[in-house]
Design a protein around this nucleic acid. Structure first.
Lengths: 218, 218
DNA sequence: ATTATATCGATAAATAAATATCAATAAAAA
DNA sequence: TTTTTATTGATATTTATTTATCGATATAAT
């Protein structure tokens, strides 16, 4: 019998909740990260256009501890969420594919707070191998496996063209990668113990265009 | 009484379905776009790790017409989905913020198929105003409103730093923009008739890290 | 011509997620 | 001190989404 990856006696967090929790964290760090500040579910809800009940229910999963009449101590809440998200275990990541999207991610500073550090970048293009891209050294893809194993890297960012995506993913999995952040517009086939998070830009844009289309017609 | 934007007597499409439909289209165009080819819900499901029933139910919303024993005519199915997604009405978009992410999107070729065309880019940086970035002319942001109104542009891509995001969104809404694709890690406050699609990279990465963390511990 | 088979599509059931209700509680106000 | 108020958090309800069942049907095999 195969499980879907979740253990039985572990608290199951709904996917929508899981996606909202980092948003709460971003907000809290930006606007409430001061000594002794309290923040209520209704304040958070107001700022994010959600309902207070939903915020409260989501925060329960992080073991946040609120106080009647006051709300949550913001500092404590931030700590609860960070613990929940596993930010204590800072992880290294490798990026493969230094095209437009790869370069953008290498230059993005917003990941520091997520406990992730892009350690190295890889490509097949001889013209950029050996150079630095946004402060990251670029290696030949053939070195990926060795380095990943040596440094025990578990997270990979996949930003290669779509027709190279599956073979790159295969290579990553063989190198011991357990989580792939996939920007190629392709559904990757990976072993059961590998997690894939898709970032399919064309799909997002399609959804937006469809909603606009509906709202114009409706 | 305010509605949430959906009309009463229009068929309501579940959000998860809406997000899967463009994925089907990508797959079909890439692998089944040939004369007379039939494709079944089970084939599609197999390729995307979904269940046939779900695929069939999703496709029903597009008015796809399947045939027992054979499945769907691929060409017809593609047409159904494209019609559903509103690809007939090709739209222009403006992009504001030519940093790393903005440049990546300006260089991304995968949007052509979604019926969207980035017509111009905008920035505040005098060094790049007037230049070309990935084949797109960069204008001063102060020109956005005029041009948007003149060309009747309804879609905007927001790739400015987070602390400029809300004011940029405000400017866009005043210029008549009705759909914002937001890459800033901020929840935007916009009028009810404006659609926002968030692409919050740090959030996605957090979710991935959390899932990895769980799968290691579990 | 008949039978077996693979599929769709309608309806029903099960599961997951969002929302509502309300008792308990701690702070603030009277 | 007592009352009012805003809030959490437990439980219950409602709504949304996924999954199952099964009759109808068109093709292919016998």
């Amino acid at each position: 019998m195969t499980t879907t990856g979740q253990e039985k006696n572990r608290i199951m967090v709904p996917e929508p909740t899981l996606q909202r929790i980092p948003v709460y964290l971003q907000l809290l760090k930006r606007r409430f990260d001061n000594e002794g500040i309290y923040v209520s579910s209704s304040e958070i809800a107001e700022l994010l256009d959600l309902k207070p009940i939903q915020v409260r229910k989501d925060l329960e999963y992080t073991n946040a501890d609120g106080r009647p009449k006051l709300g949550y101590n913001a500092r404590d809440l931030i700590k609860s969420i960070e613990k929940f998200l596993g930010y204590d275990n800072i992880s290294d990541a490798f990026l493969v594919g230094c095209g437009n999207m790869g370069r953008a991610l290498l230059g993005y500073s917003g990941f520091d707070s997520t406990g992730i550090k892009i350690r190295a970048a890889f490509d097949t293009n001889l013209n950029i191998i050996g150079t630095q891209v946004n402060g990251h050294k670029v290696f030949d893809v053939s070195k990926f496996s060795d380095l990943a194993k040596r440094l025990n890297v578990r997270i990979a960012i996949l930003t290669v063209p779509f027709d190279k995506a599956q073979e790159t993913a295969d290579m990553m999995c063989e190198a011991g990668i357990k989580a792939i952040w996939n920007f190629a517009p392709v559904h990757l086939k990976v072993p059961d113990d590998v997690i894939v998070q898709n970032e399919n830009m064309a799909v997002s844009l399609s959804v937006l265009v469809k909603k606009l289309d509906d709202s114009m017609k409706g």
